[in-house]
Amino acid sequence: MFARRRFAVLKNLLEYVGIEPGRLHFSWISSAEAEKFQKTVAAVTEDVKALGPAQHMIKDIRKVA
């Protein structure tokens, strides 16, 4: 519940600075909802796949050093 407020603000902020909305997902699944879990995993994977590899925010030591 506190986390909900926290992530509402965080998601807005990350989208504001340019992280694509599809990279960050939140969901609410009870321990009895195995099927919802399965569907959500598929949906999340699909969304991220559509966006392609992440470009930003990555700390690549090989590139920096």
């Binding site: 986390a3 990279r23 960050l24 992440a54 925010m57 700390k59």
Partner: peptide
């Protein structure tokens, strides 16, 4: 618990090079 989840974790995950982050409560 999802209450343990901190924005730091999400940014740390992105820093380590994941393509997406999924938080589920």
């Amino acid at each position: 618990c999802t209450g343990r989840m901190s924005p730091k974790f999400i940014l740390a995950a992105f820093r380590k090079g994941v393509d997406g982050v999924w938080v589920s409560g």
